[in-house]
Amino acid sequence: MDRDEVMAKVTEIARDIFDDDELELDDETIAADVDGWDSLTHLSLMNEIENEFEIKFEMKEVQGLNNVGELVDVIMERIA
C-alpha cells in the first residue's frame, strides 16, 4: 500500500467517524480543522485505524502526533 492509498483509507474512516462524506484530509490537517474531532472521536479514529491496518500504536506515537501527515507516516512505518 503506498502513501496515497493509506491517506485515502484514513480519510474514508474519518468520513465515517465524523459523519461527513465530503471531508478531505491532507498532511497539514489538524484536529481543530475537523468538526467533531474531540477526545472521544479521536480514540475511536485511532482504534479503527489500528483494526483496519492490523497494527497497535505505541503510547509515544499516539501522544506525539501533530497532524494527519505524521499519523500516515507512522502507519506507513508500521505496515512496511
Binding site: 477526545s39 480514540l43 500504536f57 503510547m59
Partner: peptide, 12 residues
C-alpha cells in the same frame, strides 16, 4: 496504551 493515554480501563 488506552488506559495510560485516556484513563479508560476497558479496551474500546
Amino acid at each position: 496504551v488506552l488506559y495510560y493515554n485516556a484513563k479508560v480501563n476497558i479496551a474500546l
